[in-house]
Structures are given as C-alpha cells and as structure tokens.
Design a protein around this nucleic acid. Structure first.
Lengths: 347, 347
DNA sequence: AGCGCCTCCCGAAACGTTTTGGTTTTGGCT
DNA sequence: AGCCAAAACCAAAACGTTTCGGGAGGCGCT
C-alpha cells in the first residue's frame, strides 16, 4: 500500500547542486575536488547547497570518467581464520592512509567462490588486488579472470610462474625448519606433520622446512607421518586422528596452520590424550585467544597485519607508478613458546 | 625502467567487441544480457570475440546507466567476532542466490570507521545495506549518510526511532531472561552481568531480560553487579576482574556477548579461580571453537547465519518492490549447556 | 589605449553501458 | 511478384562525473 507511492526517487546529482548554488556543473566539480580556482563566496554557496540537498557523489560516474576507482580488492580464503582478519585489517589500514578504499572477498578456500569475487571486483574496476589464493586453485586461472590488473600475493603464492606485481609473506621453509628444530631439541623423534594442500607453495615450503630439519638431525623420514589437510578444523581433526590412532603414534604433531592445530587439539582431547605430556602440539599462526586454550598453544607467529600492510603498499606503489620495496618481501616469524610442547615421555 | 613502458593499457570495451564481431554496440549488449533477438550465428561470433579479446564488462558504466548496481552492503562491528562472520556469510549466501553481490564493511565497533564504510558504499550506489551498527553510534547519524537508501538492521538495532526497512534478530530480553533463569535454577543468587554499551538496543534488551529474571525470582537487584562493557575481550576482562575482586564476589557471571565471555574467562584463569566450581560463566553467541575451551563454554546460541540470510532477504525483497516477511523478524535462540556453569559452592 | 596576465567561471566532450525507437532483412503467404 | 509480420540489427540518447579549452572581467604596466 503505502510502500507503493514513493518509487524511483533518484539520487541528487551534481547538476542539481549547480542549479541550487547558481553555478555551473564544472564549478561544482572543481569545488568538490578542491583544486582550481573557485572564490570563497562561491565555495560557501556550493557547500550550503550540498548540505541542504544532501548531495552524495556518484563514484560510478566518477570512476567511469577517471578510469580509476581508487580502490583495491583483498580476497582471502577464510574470514573465520583470525590470521586473515588481521591481514585484511593491515591492508585496510594502509589503504586508508593512502586514501584507497578496499573491497573484501572471502573465498572459503574454494576456487569457484574466489573466481566470483575476483570477477566481480574486476568488473567494478578496482585498481588492483591483493590475493591469498584458495587452496584448490591450480595456477594461472586467475590471470584469465583478472587480465592485466595488478596483483600482489600475500601469505600464499601460486605454484606456477604467474605474473604478479609483488609477493609478501614469511620465509616458510625457514620458519617450519626452526619450529621443527624446536621439537627436535625437546627430544622428539617421531613427529607428525599436518600440512596444507600441496598445490600451495606455502604448504610445500613448510613441508620442505620440516623435512629439512628432520634430515638435518639424521633421523629417518617416515613419510606416513606426513599428512596433507585442507587448512580447516575438520581436516586437522581427521588427520590428527589418523596419526594418533596408528600403531606407533608420534610424540609431537606440527600443524602448518592454526585451523588445523585447533582440529588436532580437538582430536587429542577427544581421544583423551594428555597434551603436552603424551603428545606435543605445535601450531602455525597465532591468534588472540590462543592463550585461553588449555594447554596454551605454542605456535610460530606470522606478522599478519604487517603482511597486509606491506602487500597494500606494494600494490598501491605500483598503481601509482612509484617503485616500491623489493619483492618477494619476507617478514620475520617468531616462535611463541607456551605450554603445548614438552619433552616426550620415556617409553 | 621496464615498468615505465606499458602505461595506460585501458580495458577492452563493448565497442571493440562490436568491431571484432562485425556487429553494433547494441547488439553486443543484447547478447550480453541474453535477451532480445540475436541470431545463433551472430551470438557465436560475439562470444568468440569476447573470448579472444578477454572482454570484461564495466560495472561502473552499467550501474550508471541502469541506476542500479545489484549489490548490497553489509557492515558489521567486528569481523574478528565469529558471530559476525557467520552473519556475513548468511547475507552473502542469500544474496548470491538472488544474484546480488555484497560489499563487506568492518567498523571495529567504531562509528568513524562505520561512517566511512557507509559513505563509501553509498557513493558506490549499492542498492541497500544491512547494518549492524557500531556501539558508540548515537542514533540517527546514519540516516544523514545514507539518505533514503534502504537499510535493514541485523542483530542490533538503533535506539532512536530510526526509519528502516526491516529488522531481524532474536528476542534478546527473552533469551537473556531464560539464560538468567538457568543460572537461578542452578541455585545462583549473586549473579554478575557484563553487558554491552547502553546505547545499543540489544544490550538494553538483554539487560532488561536479566533484571526481569532476577526480579521474578524475588531477589534483590544489586546494581553494582551490572557492568557495561564494549563487546570486546578487554572490557570483558576488565569488568570480570572488577566483579571477581570485590568484597562479595558473584558466584556466576553472565556475559552478553562472546568476546566479553572470552575476556571474562581470561580473567577467571588469571585470578586462579576454578570455573565453574568457584564461578560459573555463561556466554552469549556460540562459536566453533567454544568446545575447545576448558571448561567448554555454556552459551546462548543465536542463529547467526539465518539472521544474515533473512536480513538479506528482507532487504532484497524491498529493493525489488516485493512485499516481504513481517518485521521485526525474531529468530529463536537456544541455550547450549556445556561445562562452564554448575551450582554454586556452599559458603 | 592597448596589452598581458591573473582569477573565476562556463560549455561541451568524453567515459562504457543499456534502451528506445527505429530500419533493414527474412521468409511465409497470397 | 507483391505484401507483411516477425526477426535481426543498429544509431543515438541517456546515466553523472571530470577535464579541456575558452571567455569574461579586473588589474597593472607601458
């Protein structure tokens, strides 16, 4: 009934502002992008008109004319993973400081979803995208969607030699190697690892670091101790179950992301094993409630927010034609020792 | 150096596709929005041209012409709160099914940030917004930013009689009342509550439910047991500390959101109190790792995803001029009893 | 007076779509 | 052949900005 009446109330345009202020369209525009000559008196008339008319600039028209939207996209694989929230916030904060606006995509570790987001953002003509590719992506497909939009990879990077503007993350093999060394130094010899999908360069690097540490300690590498999950709780749970219910179970488990560490912890609790006494657990990525868990999780922390900020910086520098910092930009990780790892029990 | 060369490579337009396919611009458009007459032969020529040129439609131009973007915004106060991630995903899933695209905003419980997002989305001419207002918002301010863009409120709603298209959430006073009754039924008489800011209708409703349950049990209401926090871990921690270190400490604490429950749990652990034996803890909002905590948290669960889906539905129905379900739409909560509440110790 | 140079403002042409109102082509029917 | 409707296509006008090329005054100088 009453909803019918006021249809199609369109937005107020710059033209109406011009009318109200007794000025021309181009003068309004000049005043808006406060540059050029416009007299103080005219300016105040314009501001008044804008206020009373509640004018809101149309960024579609603006972007169309300018061939530039002053916005970048950030697409991450899992918003419920706090690591990526921090990363997004890093991107956001840097972008805001450079007066860029961000569009957020959440692919849920699913290429179809990611493709939709990338496509949508491309159609919206973002000026660039920082991308954390979904796991089941096989390389090069994004190129077909994004054309020659500048892309910087954060955290993960594509397997194939894709073309991109920059890459930022951590030295994953080094980080995994030293984390594994920590477990070795505690005396562990039977260490299980749950990694992400092998299609991810990041996962491969972490696995490589693990293997390298094991080999460096002259320990026979038991391939059945290596499980590839999907970076979510379920697969962490599943693979931990596999590892812990076999004949000779590992005395420590290393999970290469936080979600899988959580799943593994759930599995440990479910089986009724004491952690860390009966099995140590080492995670990747810190999160704000890691200290609420019992045991408090020992993890290797990545500087998520910084990764996001640097990614945004490299991207925006590129967009604006500046030269930027060298890439790949590798940031430092840090082993946060808490309570979930201890020396193995004597057999 | 080499980055200099290939400047200003613009996007390929519908005109170039027309050229390549030997057709007119309008025919391409017709083919794209696959309607109207276009012969099979022509269509395939066009598709070929699109493929080889890697044409990507410009949604700025499209939205400008159509006066409609087929997109809605969702702005939430805290993306690191899993409740809102689920809500966003609900919005996203419903929107996708209606072939709407979403833009995500994360205000971090901060009106300035929220305003920026709302403004940015308005300028982008989204067709509507579902909004979970930040805490420190005093009513009516959003109206000034959004003009007469349709808004539906989810989870929280504004204090003032703001004009909106719909509202969806839960019956907060009822939920809080029955949660409190549960604590009472366990035998608690000294119950502390940590609520959100009083500027939020949601917080007020939950507090109202709490008070009503207390009064219903003929217990004197001790106002010093009522603390108003900011829906984050810090304030949960802070107020729990206050409550637990006073002369007569409560035997149970009810936190009206999950972040504050986490903070309270941290405080309890810090003080070294046994939970639930020495102090019971009851939270609001469930989250996927609530069972990993020790004790496993007892909470009242809201159907976050459904709230998002319904919000999107109401909004999109409105946008398309359909009539929708009655509003406010109040969904059912559920008390998930786990281990963090038990009868109080005998004094 | 004439000239040049500011300052302040304006008209019109883009930007890449969709849509309206055509015009041409096709093919079936007398 | 001739006619006509339907099918297939097209040109041009919007949509709301910004920018480019001027233009009208005003002022200081020769």
């Amino acid at each position: 009934m009453k909803a019918r009446a006021k249809r199609v109330r369109r937005h107020v345009t710059i033209r109406e502002v011009a009318q109200a202020a007794g000025a021309s369209v181009s003068t309004i525009s000049a005043a808006l992008n406060n540059s050029d000559y416009v007299s103080a008196d005219m300016r105040s008339r314009i501001e008044a008109a804008i206020k009373t008319l509640k004018y809101c600039p149309n960024d579609l028209a603006r972007g169309l004319r300018l061939q530039k939207t002053h916005s970048i996209a950030i697409v991450v694989p899992d918003l419920s993973n706090n690591f990526y929230i921090e990363l997004v916030r890093g991107v956001k904060d840097y972008s805001a400081s450079a007066s860029y606006t961000i569009l957020i995509g959440d692919s849920r570790e699913n290429w179809e979803e990611e493709r939709n987001y990338l496509d949508s953002f491309h159609r919206r003509r973002v000026d660039g995208v920082v991308r954390v590719p979904a796991m089941n992506t096989t390389g090069g497909k994004a190129k077909a969607i994004l054309g020659n939009l500048p892309v910087v990879y954060a955290d993960r990077h594509p397997r194939e030699r894709d073309t991109y503007v920059g890459r930022v993350g951590v030295d994953n093999t080094q980080a995994a190697k030293s984390a594994t060394s920590y477990l070795l130094s505690l005396g562990h010899r039977d260490i299980g690892i749950i990694t992400g999908d092998a299609s991810s360069g990041t996962s491969r690097d972490r696995l490589r670091g693990f293997v390298s540490a094991i080999r460096g300690a002259k320990i026979r590498l038991d391939r059945s101790m290596i499980h590839a999950g999907h970076n979510d709780m379920e697969s962490g749970h599943f693979h931990a179950m596999q590892l812990l219910t076999r004949g000779q179970r590992p005395t420590a488990i290393f999970c290469t992301n936080n979600m899988m560490a959580l799943g593994a912890l759930a599995a440990i609790q479910e089986i009724g094993l004491a952690c860390p006494e009966e099995v140590s657990l080492l995670g990747f990525d810190d999160f704000y409630w890691a200290t609420l868990l019992r045991p408090r999780l020992t993890v290797v922390r990545q500087p998520a927010r910084e990764i996001g900020m640097i990614a945004a910086r490299i991207l925006i520098d590129h967009i604006e034609g500046r030269s930027s910092i060298p890439t790949p930009a590798l940031l430092k990780t840090q082993l946060i020792v808490r309570d979930s790892c201890c020396p193995p029990e004597k057999m």
